[in-house]
Amino acid sequence: MVPEDRSGAATAAPLEVHGITVTYGEKPAVFSADMTVRAGELTAIVGPNGAGKSTLLKAVLGIVMPLAGQVQFFGLPLDKARDRIAYVPQRASVDWDFPTRVIDVVLMGMYRQLGLLGRVRQAHRDAALHCLTRVGMQDFAERQIGQLSGGQQQRVFLARALAQQADLYLLDEPFAGVDAATEKAIIGVLKELAEEGRTVVAVHHDLSTVPEYFDNVLLLATQVIAEGPVSTTFVPELLHKAYGGRLGAGQVIGALAETV
């Protein structure tokens, strides 16, 4: 779809997806999707409700099994690239009454490095605290996770991903149901990651912030409608294709007003 992405694939894009199809029962949730993520940039996966945004992300990561399709991370299969990938699930996907503290959740990002029996040393704790500081949650390290607000929970999830020291960050609706302060903190960290040369892909639902937050966008409505830089892809014509009648003209104009 976008020629320059194809040529860039030779140098192993952080994430490259070909013809991925996921079905629940016999209804495709994602049909034959292609995707090539540009290194060191922020990419949003955008589309109407039920367009398969989260499903695409989960299928790419092997959390749900795709019916067909190929996925490569940095030119490698998933199993060889796990150390370079960090995933931030939807906040609602876990039980927040689980007996664990904020700092313990962040340390979970280091389990792979710690191994089965490796002792958690002060250096690990310091690293975890540093990750919490980056998301502005350092004061909450000893709190039980159930005492956090939704936005704080989301920031803890991001801190855990930071602790993984990955090159590719995949986030599922990181801005869903969070307060303005959290949204600001999260996008700040994501932009920092991109400046460090890391790659960020996020499922995103708020069209009005796409131009401000992201470099690239993938429009999804079961199939990929378009993929490319925000300036050429996030345009009314393509948005209407993705959203059909579900998108009021006002929404598109509002979203685009910020690009201009």
Partner: peptide
Amino acid sequence: GFAEVAGH
């Protein structure tokens, strides 16, 4: 989900 992606 996180456990899966992190290789656990």
